[in-house]
Design a protein around this nucleic acid. Structure first.
Lengths: 190, 190
DNA sequence: CTGTCGATGACAGTCACTGACATCAACAGT
DNA sequence: ACTGTTGATGTCAGTGACTGTCATCGACAG
């Protein structure tokens, strides 16, 4: 057996989401999070760089998955279709996590610092997607624009997925949102 | 005469930009900024909510000017043309401030917290522009998309304006960037 | 049995940020 | 001229996020 309970990082993330939900982000101290996870404040900062980052532990995996799927889409796929493949892959990783995602977004919506962190994560995602598209031979500014569009679709699709009454799968909502973007950007044509 | 030197707020902003440039954002304490401005740390926090905000004192005026110009563009103007009018207005307010803007962007580029703050300011700008467009009768999602596009053009134009060798006026670069966006989004057509 | 390693704890310290109260020139009203 | 109010600032004592440093001690290799 191990000297400590396993998955300290996960316990910290869980404790943080609970406390942020219960009493709000600002009213929660890092010491409290650590205590609920059975650890000390110092150990919290060994797993997460700051009090905000504990809510974004999954963003690295999300970005890797998204970028990987874009990079490995069929060579024949157009840029926007590679992005669509990425959205499909990402949707799979959220299956069964809708309630947790709702709680998390509620917390983020209630605090400006957390919104800032979310924005920079999305900016990082857009930059990485742009790089993946350039790796597929897409030139600028098409690569960056398509990447930004992909992130915009993800945002819209995600918001719909966590909407109160919504029960459809994320993948469907992502496809729907992408279709709407296509319709809008095609505006003015036949 | 007044009891204190005038323009405390401006002196703080100036001192902060100097110190952030000289020794970096993280290596500068608020007490140092206040001391250089001839004030105390407590007074700094009466003028700016936090250590980051002191670099964004002009963002309120920028947003007001941009939004106002969009709202007051000729009724006949298309959404994107209203945005173009806003970009013209904004360009005027930066005249003579290129060097200061360059130093400021260098500081921001060197620190993640400052980038986060900049991103949320731009998100706020996009939201406000979307509102102004809706006020002109533009429906969703065209209003939000056009607003996002406007912010994207502003970002690109601004980056070019502060590029090392660049000497052209901001207004020209904004027009140029907007034209490029038009070209890209028109892609696939005749 | 012993030495290394890695995750954690303990503890002191810096600094961003806040609340409460004091100060005092300017100014208005008398 | 006298006085009360106001507003920007100073002073001081906090709280809490975050960091550097060293100690601890099961697991594991040899």
């Amino acid at each position: 057996m191990s000297r400590w309970e396993p998955n300290a990082r996960g316990r910290l993330a869980e404790a943080a989401l609970e406390l942020y939900s219960e009493r709000g982000y600002e009213q929660t101290t890092v010491a409290e999070i650590a205590r609920r996870a059975g650890l000390t404040e110092r150990t919290f900062f060994r797993h997460y760089t700051d009090k905000r980052e504990v809510l974004f532990g999954g963003s690295g995996a999300l970005q890797e998955l998204f970028v990987g799927a874009v990079a490995e889409a069929p060579e024949s796929a157009a840029p926007i279709d590679a992005i669509a493949a990425g959205l499909e892959a990402v949707s799979a990783m959220f299956v069964g996590r809708r309630e947790q995602s709702r709680r998390r977004q509620t917390v983020i919506a209630g605090n400006a610092e957390l919104q800032e962190r979310e924005l920079i994560k999305l900016a990082s995602l857009a930059a990485a997607l742009g790089g993946a598209l350039r790796g597929r031979g897409v030139t600028e500014p098409a690569a960056s624009l398509t990447a930004e569009a992909g992130v915009a679709v993800f945002k819209v699709g995600f918001e719909r997925w966590i909407a109160p009454a919504e029960e459809r799968e994320m993948a469907s909502l992502m496809r729907e949102s992408l279709d709407e973007l296509r319709a809008v950007t095609a505006g003015g044509r036949a």
